[in-house]
Amino acid sequence: MQLENAVIAITGGARGLGLSMAHHLGKLGARPALIDFDNDQLDKAVNELVDAGIDARGFVANVADEASVTEVFADIRQGMGPLDGLINNAGILRDGLLVKARDGKVEKMLGLDAWQAVIDVNLTGVFLCGRAAAAAMIEDGRNGVIVNISSISRAGNMGQSNYAAAKAGVAALTVTWGRELARHGLRVAAVAPGFIETEMTASMREDMLDKLTAGVPVRRLGAPDEIAKTVAFIFDNDYVNGRVIEVDGGLRL
Rank of each mutant, 00 (worst) to 15 (best):
167 K>V: 05
142 R>S: 11
110 L>N: 07
137 M>G: 11
203 S>W: 11
226 E>W: 12
47 N>A: 15
249 G>E: 08
105 K>E: 13
178 G>S: 04
208 M>L: 11
137 M>S: 09
85 G>V: 09
218 V>W: 06
245 I>F: 14
149 I>K: 02
21 M>K: 00
203 S>P: 06
158 M>C: 05
176 T>F: 09
24 H>Q: 04
178 G>F: 03
175 V>L: 12
30 A>Q: 04
29 G>T: 08
87 I>A: 01
95 D>L: 05
15 R>V: 15
39 N>I: 10
134 A>K: 07
96 G>P: 10
211 K>N: 13
239 Y>I: 07
165 A>K: 09
27 K>E: 14
55 D>H: 04
169 G>K: 09
149 I>T: 11
37 F>N: 13
220 R>N: 10
178 G>W: 02
129 C>V: 03
78 Q>I: 03
222 G>A: 08
177 W>R: 04
105 K>V: 15
85 G>C: 11
250 G>E: 05
30 A>V: 09
93 L>Y: 03
107 E>K: 12
169 G>R: 08
166 A>V: 06
239 Y>G: 10
44 K>R: 12
244 V>D: 02
241 N>I: 10
165 A>I: 01
128 L>S: 09
27 K>F: 06
226 E>N: 07
93 L>C: 06
52 A>W: 01
50 V>E: 03
211 K>L: 06
81 G>S: 12
190 A>C: 03
189 A>K: 12
72 V>Q: 03
104 G>S: 06
32 P>W: 00
78 Q>Y: 07
101 A>T: 04
50 V>C: 08
150 S>H: 09
185 G>R: 01
149 I>C: 04
167 K>A: 09
189 A>T: 12
5 N>E: 15
34 L>I: 08
111 G>M: 11
20 S>P: 06
19 L>M: 07
98 L>D: 06
164 A>G: 15
200 M>A: 02
50 V>M: 02
156 G>H: 02
214 A>S: 14
17 L>S: 08
136 A>W: 03
159 G>S: 07
61 A>Y: 01
124 T>L: 11
57 R>L: 13
141 G>I: 10
100 K>V: 11
46 V>K: 00
151 S>R: 00
53 G>F: 01
17 L>C: 09
202 A>Y: 07
36 D>K: 02
3 L>I: 13
187 R>M: 10
213 T>Q: 03
213 T>I: 15
187 R>K: 13
79 G>D: 14
143 N>R: 14
95 D>N: 13
99 V>R: 04
15 R>G: 15
39 N>A: 14
107 E>Y: 09
133 A>Y: 04
129 C>L: 02
115 W>C: 05
90 A>V: 07
182 A>E: 08
252 R>N: 11
113 D>G: 06
190 A>P: 03
35 I>G: 02
63 V>G: 11
205 R>D: 13
74 A>N: 12
134 A>D: 06
177 W>N: 09
14 A>R: 03
98 L>V: 14
45 A>N: 05
5 N>Y: 09
12 G>H: 00
28 L>A: 15
73 F>P: 11
172 A>C: 08
64 A>F: 03
235 F>D: 07
20 S>V: 13
94 R>L: 01
240 V>T: 15
120 D>E: 12
